[in-house]
């Protein structure tokens, strides 16, 4: 064990980054969503107000009398986060306060039940950054399929069996739908590339108006991978092309993270138990596997993710480490 010259509590007080979430939360080991939320709140800083939808992020962080939130935070319901955030933003405006409003929700609360409120919030132009932590199913209730669950993934309500190969429907293209609101800024990000995520959070916060961030956040429990592999799985999602990292402004693609060497989708799928049935020795399984591969290739073509050469910000270069990290300050 490491001998530390100063008490940990002192050191914790002197950490170089403000984080909106404290330890002591009850998220599972290796939780991608808590990691994503941690990174988002770090990039956003302390001058924010958070509205949070029902979901894992809420129940793991606010077990009364404990709260892991260090920023003002409210949870109301599942589907109304965007509306609550709208109200907060309207109040801040009325009071001439300048804090940024953040709305946090999972994919169920965004793609499905909370979609209407989100659409309204964007249409009305509220100055809110809405962050969807996308773990591709209703995890808090025990891994039920959502509009975000990818085709072929097994969940408790889209199980794999003799007659079914997991979910039969495509993942909803939420970003295009969001972007169709003539959105000032919408982007996808992932826990596998924290620097890219931070950049996008800061960019989204700078914009005066509604902005949207879809953060791919692996769920070890729901996806069936060890908690230690959360970042690795997320990285494979990007490198395979299934999880394109893109930025849209007013609906037009203005930035992509190029993929230097596309990995086979099978590498990503194999790492997760929810796709295990796709590796069965059957023609149907093989076809569904090819389907997912084709979806990845379609993403690469659609967003022009093929990189002509190595770039510092492509799928290989973006997570390169430097000695000394971000230094102290």
């Amino acid at each position: 064990m490491t001998a530390v010259p100063i008490p940990l509590s002192d050191l914790r007080r002197r950490q170089p980054r403000f984080t909106g979430i404290s330890p002591g939360h009850r998220a599972c080991q290796g939780c991608g969503e808590l990691l994503a939320a941690r990174l988002v709140t770090e990039a956003a800083g302390p001058d924010v107000v958070v509205a949070n939808a029902t979901g894992c992020l809420e129940v793991t962080t606010t077990n009364w009398p404990d709260s892991a939130w260090r920023v003002p935070w409210i949870h109301s319901l599942f589907e109304n986060t965007a509306a609550v955030a709208s109200g907060i933003e309207a109040a801040l405006k009325a009071q001439s306060r300048s804090s940024k409003v953040l709305a946090f929700a999972g994919d169920g609360g965004t793609f499905d039940i909370g979609f209407q409120a989100l659409s309204g919030m964007i249409e009305r132009g509220h100055n809110v950054l809405y962050v969807c932590y996308d773990n591709e199913a209703y995890m808090n209730t025990g891994v039920q399929r959502s509009g975000s669950t990818p085709v072929g993934a097994a969940t408790t309500t889209s199980p794999a069996g003799k007659e079914r190969l997991g979910k039969r429907h495509l993942k909803k293209d939420i970003l295009s739908i969001i972007a169709a609101h003539y959105m000032p800024y919408a982007a996808t990000a992932t826990v596998a590339y924290p620097a890219d995520l931070r950049h996008k959070v800061r960019r989204a916060i700078e914009v005066e108006g509604p902005t949207f961030l879809l953060v791919h956040s692996p769920c070890p429990q729901g996806w069936g991978h060890d908690g230690s592999r959360t970042v690795e799985v997320a990285r494979l999602g990007v490198q395979s092309g299934l999880v394109p990292l893109i930025e849209l402004e007013r609906g037009a693609v203005t930035g992509v993270m190029p993929i230097r060497e596309p990995r086979p989708v099978a590498d990503y799928l194999k790492a997760q138990a929810r796709f295990r049935h796709l590796f069965a020795d059957s023609a149907e399984a093989a076809r569904e596997l090819q389907h997912l591969q084709a979806l990845a290739e379609h993403n690469i073509e659609r967003y022009g993710l093929s990189a002509p050469g190595p770039e510092a910000h492509d799928s290989e270069g973006a997570d390169t480490v430097r000695r000394g990290g971000n230094q102290w300050a």
Binding site: V49, A51, I74, S76, L77, N80, A82, A83, V84, A85, S86, G87, I88, E89, A90, A91, L92, A94, Q95, Q116, A117, G120
Partner: peptide, 14 residues
């Protein structure tokens, strides 16, 4: 959303 927006606004002190 009408109720939710009012809730958010009131929670923010308006």
């Amino acid at each position: 959303s009408a109720a939710s927006t009012a809730l958010g606004a009131a929670a923010a002190g308006a």
